[in-house]
Simulated scan of single mutants.
Amino acid sequence: MMELPKWIFDVMLCVSAWSSTFAFVLLFKKIYPGQSIIRFVKDKFNSKLKFSVILTVVMIQALIFLIILFLVSKNSEVDSIITISSSWMLIYFFFRNLFAGPLGEELGWRGFAQIELQKRHTPLMASIIIGFWWGMWHLPIWFTSGLMGLDLIKYILFFMIALISIKIVMTAFYNLNKNLVIPIIIHQLFNFFIGLIDGNLLDLIMYNAILYFVVAVFFIIINPKNVLYGQKETNFRLQPLKGQGD
């Protein structure tokens, strides 16, 4: 079987990552008749970014990365457990991940689906629902992992736990800042860090699932500013455009 050149695979990966946003853009006028998609997108980035939120996000994910790095290094027999060997490759890998995931997915999943579900459910329940379907959306990855049998079942289980957990974390921080940059950062660091470590795939997804699950449970328990549940009324509906509804 002929293998595709890596750059073609990367382009295809980017296109597939943007599919949810492409679908949302095509359906926008039916979902929000009379609304402007440009304004909709601007609204998602309109809130002033809070340095404390960004710093907390980066610190949590960096800590998870270091813990996983330590765990993998304890069981690794190779000289280096980092997959990137040069600064240029690191830069390429960073931006490839950015365009092949967070930038393409977050407007559709978080910018639209999360907000719509939060009109009918608590943010926590909305996160679980979206996390499940977000995981199912990655189904092709499961069957290209090279795993089979019980290992594949374990991989799928840990994969779903990891994505639902990180979705809860995304929601908590997004609702603290109301800027789509926050889930983009979380999504990017998750993908970027897991791709940096040269380890057993099943172990990597298991470590991520466990650690992000712990973080998610922590936020569910403390529920800062009622960002996951407990608000009497959560209203994320778009305001009418000027001149509408007058």
Rank of each mutant, 00 (worst) to 15 (best):
F95E: 12
F95P: 10
F95W: 10
R96G: 15
R96C: 14
N97A: 15
L98K: 12
L98D: 10
L98E: 10
A100W: 08
A100D: 06
A100Y: 09
A100V: 13
P102Q: 10
P102N: 09
P102Y: 12
L103N: 13
G104H: 07
G104E: 06
G104V: 10
G104K: 05
E106Y: 06
L107M: 09
L107T: 08
L107P: 05
G108W: 11
G108T: 14
R110N: 05
R110G: 04
G111F: 13
G111S: 14
F112Q: 02
F112A: 03
A113G: 12
A113K: 08
Q114F: 14
Q114W: 14
Q114H: 14
I115V: 11
E116A: 09
E116V: 08
K119C: 01
K119T: 02
R120M: 13
H121T: 12
T122I: 02
T122L: 00
P123C: 02
P123G: 03
M125A: 02
A126N: 03
I129C: 06
I130A: 11
I130V: 12
G131L: 02
F132D: 10
W133M: 08
W134G: 07
W134Y: 08
W134V: 13
G135E: 00
G135A: 03
G135C: 00
M136L: 15
M136S: 13
H138G: 09
L139E: 14
L139Q: 12
P140H: 06
P140I: 13
I141W: 07
I141D: 06
F143H: 12
F143R: 12
S145N: 01
S145E: 02
G146V: 04
L147V: 03
L147S: 03
M148Y: 14
G149V: 02
L150I: 15
L150M: 15
D151K: 13
D151Q: 09
L152N: 04
I153T: 10
I153S: 06
I153D: 06
I153K: 10
K154V: 09
K154F: 08
Y155Q: 02
I156N: 00
L157T: 04
L157N: 01
L157K: 01
F159V: 02
F159D: 03
M160Q: 14
M160F: 15
I161D: 05
A162Y: 08
A162F: 11
A162Q: 09
L163H: 07
L163F: 02
I166G: 00
I166M: 04
I166C: 00
K167Y: 10
K167H: 09
I168K: 03
V169D: 00
T171C: 01
A172V: 12
A172M: 11
A172Y: 03
A172I: 10
F173V: 05
F173Q: 01
F173I: 07
F173H: 04
Y174K: 06
L176H: 06
L176Y: 10
N177I: 05
K178I: 03
K178E: 09
K178C: 05
K178N: 11
I182L: 05
I182E: 03
P183D: 01
P183K: 00
I184R: 11
I184T: 14
I186L: 15
I186W: 07
H187V: 06
H187G: 02
Q188L: 15
L189P: 07
F190A: 15
F190M: 13
N191C: 15
